[in-house]
């Protein structure tokens, strides 16, 4: 196994922001049955800190070991059971995208132990992704009491270490001074192109930009040319009007996106209901 091995000696810290966990649990709860999906985020290795010097000789220095930090930022799921793999638990890549750090599986009212297929999927995923850290598996078991007065969202994180899924603790990072470290260590990933200061010779400035970069900017601001953006960034001051213009463009873009999402969500909901009816019929339910 490519992963594991070294992971036994490292301390692993897994964290998820409260909002990301809430979104994930919401996804699991609204699914009609079980569901699974991929987890995204980032993992970073921190080498072992040098042994600290202590004034007190009688106190043995605590052995320090390298730390692996895994942060979950979000998930993707089609809210359908076994969507990631075949019946034998072999990973099937549905759409290309950023590399996941692991996967989650939600099954209602079941034991918080990896199932036969989840274990196989973890192995298969680990093999096909060839990550530098152990695959993360988050098992969720939502349940509710008969009169729906109590809802439980039991969950447990596992890491694939030496071919076994070993339970690991999951920290929920919330807003507040206690979690400042996590927020300070957050490194945002953005598709925004890197904009160095404009070249001294203006003749080559326009040509170095690719259409891909322009598309990335278009994804965020409507009707704001890359050249214009470069000017804003490059010049010292006095472009506040331009900046205002850019933010307004960003807001317009967001609103447009929100409307599109709203419309498409409605279509998805309608289609899901149609599918549900077909599945009911197929399963011989009324």
């Amino acid at each position: 196994m490519a992963t594991g091995g070294d992971a036994t000696s490292t301390v692993t810290k897994i964290s998820i922001s409260g909002a990301a966990l809430a979104a994930l649990l919401q996804r699991c709860v609204i699914a009609t049955g079980d569901c699974d999906g991929l987890l995204f985020g980032c993992a970073s290795h921190v080498p072992a800190p040098p042994p600290s010097l202590s004034d007190y000789d009688d106190h043995a220095p605590s052995p320090s070991s390298p730390t692996l930090t895994i942060s979950i930022y979000g998930h993707s799921s089609v809210a359908h059971p076994s969507s990631l793999c075949d019946p034998l638990g072999r990973f099937q890549l549905s759409a290309p995208g950023p590399a996941p750090i692991g996967f989650f599986s939600s099954r209602r009212r079941t034991a918080l132990r990896p199932s036969m297929r989840e274990l196989s999927l973890a192995h298969s995923l680990s093999k096909s992704l060839a990550l530098t850290h152990p695959i993360l598996f988050l098992l969720v078991s939502p349940s509710s009491s008969a009169n729906l007065s109590t809802h439980s969202y039991d969950h447990r994180a596992f890491l694939l270490i030496s071919s076994r899924l070993v339970p690991a603790s999951l920290d929920v990072a919330n807003v507040g001074p206690g979690f400042r470290d996590q927020y300070h260590s957050f490194a945002p990933g953005s598709t925004m192109p890197w904009l160095p200061l404009p070249h001294p010779s203006p003749s080559t400035a326009g040509d170095t930009r690719t259409t891909g970069e322009q598309n990335a900017v278009d994804g965020m601001v409507d009707g704001f040319g890359l050249g214009k953006l470069e000017e804003v960034v490059g010049s010292a001051a006095g472009h506040s009007a331009e900046m205002e213009d850019m933010y307004a463009g960003m807001l317009r873009r967001l609103e447009k996106l929100a409307k599109e999402v709203e419309k498409s969500n409605l279509r998805v909901l309608k289609q899901e209901n149609r599918n549900l009816l077909l599945r009911f019929r197929y399963a011989g339910l009324e």
Partner: peptide, 10 residues
Amino acid sequence: LSPKVAPDVV
């Protein structure tokens, strides 16, 4: 509700 999905075992 997903009758075609093979069962899983714990």
